[in-house]
Every structure is written in C-alpha cells, then in structure tokens.
C-alpha cells in the first residue's frame, strides 16, 4: 500500500507543485510556513480541489489529468479532519460520529465513543464540548469510516496551548492505532516531530526538504527549517578551505569543496567578545547586537555584520560583556564547529 501523488494546482497567482510518495503505515507531517500551500495539498488529496497531475492510492487512481479522471471526494474513502473540527452543529456527538456509517451507524458510533471515554457526551451538541473533546470527536467521526488515507489539517492549532500537550499524546496514540497512511499538515515543528515518522517541508508551493525529523533538522535546507531547528544556516560557494558567502564574506572551514554548500552553525558555538580575540579561531568578525531574547538560563543574541548569526550565551556573559541592542562586539566561531553539506 502506498500513495503516489504528482500535484499541480495554480490559482490566483499561487502555484503548488508537489511530487510525493508515502508508504503504508507511515505518518508524514507536511510542515511549512503560512501560505506555503499545505492546506491546498491536503484538499487536493481529498479531491476537493481539481488538479493537474496524478494521484494514486494502492494502485487505485484518484486523479489523472491526462485521462481527465477525477474521483469525487465522497468516493475516495479518504478521511479528512479539519483544523477547527467542523462538527455538524445541528447534530449530537453520536449523530456526528455515525454520519459516515451506513448500517447500524449509531450502535457502532456509540461503541467507539465508549472506547474513547466519550460515552457520556454522546447526546451532547458540539457546542457543549471543550476544544479537546471536539478534536477527539472529529477524529473519531473520521476513523469510524475506516478510511484508507487519513488527512489531518493542523489538528491541534485550534486548541488552547495549555491542553495541547495532552491532546497531542492522545492523538499520537490514535494515529498509532490507525493502520493506513497518515498525512498531517502543521506549521508547528513540535507537533510535526512528535507525531510524524517523516517530515515534508513545503515552502511557496514546493517541497524543499523531506526526511526523518532528525535528518531534516540536522541538515536544514531552508531558513524556515533552520529557524525551527534553532540553528544558523548560511549558504555560499565552497572554495577548498573556506566558503564564500554571497556578500563576499568568507568562512574558514576544512573540506568545503568547490560547489554550492550549506553551512550550519549552532548558536552555542558562536562566541562573543568585546575586543578582537587573539589565538586559534580563524573565523573572527566584527558584529553589532540587534536584539536579545531570553530562554531560561540562556540568551539568544541576534547579530548583524558581514556574517549575520544568532549566538547563544549565558545570562552572566550578557552582563559581563554589557550586551544590549546596538553594542559592538566581536564574533568567533571555531572551524570545527561548522558542518557543511552540498546545497
């Protein structure tokens, strides 16, 4: 069992162009900033958007623009869970869960609700549920129909931050129990890493990176991924023992090759000084503090200069160095702390 999708959608100047394969039992998180086309991708898989391309699940063709084939949503057996649940407001919880069932709907739905610990809510209206309960009912409503493909659109973003962790654990359990293919869309890296086996990073309608959460965060290929991994990402051209950035600045690093490369520098490998340091580090640049951001005992310092970087230092270092926005400082990075991989 697997999903093969080649999807092209063009609308109002926005173009989505995605080619992806998902294998049975896999949970894929489509991660990307707002407006990247994540929801459009999900809607295209559900058949709610007409596409150019080809979508096929277990050899069954959903869409094929070459033969003008388009299987309507209701015939796809695809489960779609919306961001804000979209429970039918005029039906009880039981009627909602039974909606997609044909025979014996209410009995089966009742059993599912019992098992999920929501039996006492069967006769409640959606408006009487908490956000977390509504999310669980929405997922149940889809799961009872035994879809072959489960699509979740920002499943937790409508929830209050205080209950998100709890609902996320519950969601992880339910996803693990579901046997088919799971695709969830999110802009929250934590959600993606907690729930998915594989990340697909979508930016401006295109997949920029794909792989296990560890691989993706270890070797970011975009500013968006670097930001969510919390690392500095630089791009330049390899010149043997150094990298030349687009603005002409150079970074010494062994084995940089002769091709376009990415360089990742972890913020705690960035050292700050008031005066130009002497000694081993070969990468030393002047910088100006742009702003400071406190994270527990550590402070993230955003620096401007020939090589814009984020440094992570201790609160005492901030005090000792009198760091504040506008302060001039010197930056030093050991060449061995820089990891380089082809762009």
């Amino acid at each position: 069992m697997s999903l093969h999708a080649t999807i092209n959608v063009e609308r109002n100047g926005f173009a989505l162009s995605v080619d992806m394969t998902v294998f049975d039992g896999e949970t894929v998180a489509v991660l990307g900033p707002n407006g990247a086309g994540k929801t459009t991708l999900l809607r295209a898989l559900a058949g709610l958007v007409r596409i150019t391309g080809h979508v096929e699940l277990d050899g069954y063709v959903f869409d094929d623009s070459a033969t003008n084939r388009h299987v309507p949503t209701e015939e796809r057996q695809v489960g779609l869970v919306f961001q804000d649940h979209v429970l039918f407001p005029h039906m009880t919880v039981l009627q909602n869960v039974a909606f997609g069932l044909r025979r014996d709907g209410e009995r089966i739905a009742g059993a599912w609700l019992e098992r999920a610990g929501l039996g006492d809510k069967a006769n409640a209206l959606p408006s009487q549920l908490s956000g977390g309960q509504a999310q669980r009912v929405a997922l149940l409503r889809t799961l009872v129909t035994e879809p072959r493909l489960l699509l979740l659109d920002e499943p937790l973003s409508a929830l209050d931050v205080s209950i998100r962790a709890e609902v996320r654990r519950e969601l992880a359990r339910q996803l693990a129990a579901f046997k088919g293919i799971r695709i969830l869309v999110t802009h929250d890296p934590l959600e993606a890493i907690a729930l998915a086996d594989r990340l697909v990073v979508l930016e401006r309608g295109k997949i920029v990176q794909s792989g296990s959460p560890i691989d993706v965060t270890a070797k970011p290929r975009s500013r968006f991924v670097a930001d969510l991994a919390g690392v500095n990402l630089l791009r330049g051209r390899g010149r043997g023992d150094h990298i030349e950035l687009d603005n002409g600045a150079t970074i010494a690093v062994p084995g940089a090759g002769e091709d376009d490369v990415f360089a990742v520098i972890h913020p705690h490998a960035v050292a700050l000084y008031r005066a130009k340091p002497e000694g081993t580090p070969r990468n030393v640049w002047p910088a100006r503090v742009e702003d400071l951001d406190l994270h527990a005992e550590r402070v993230r310092v955003r620096l401007g200069g020939p090589v814009p970087l984020v440094a992570e230092v201790t609160t005492s270092a901030v005090r000792d160095l009198h760091l504040e926005p506008g302060t001039d400082a010197w930056v030093a990075v050991k060449a061995t702390e820089i990891s380089v991989y082809p762009a």
């Binding site: 949503t73 919306f82 979209v86 039918f88 889809t142």
Partner: peptide
C-alpha cells in the same frame, strides 16, 4: 461555511445526503 459540506463529502455522503442532512438543516 462550505467546509461543513466538504466534511460531509469526505465522510462519504453523496450530493443528496449532503444537501438533506447538512446543507438544509444548517
């Protein structure tokens, strides 16, 4: 909100069922 109708379709409801059970009551 047309997503109610989309949710119903995704749950396998044909046009008539979507109209009778979702659109009309809403």
């Amino acid at each position: 909100d047309q997503r109610y109708e989309e949710a119903a379709r995704a749950l396998g409801a044909n046009s008539w069922k979507v109209f009778a059970r979702v659109t009309l009551p809403l």
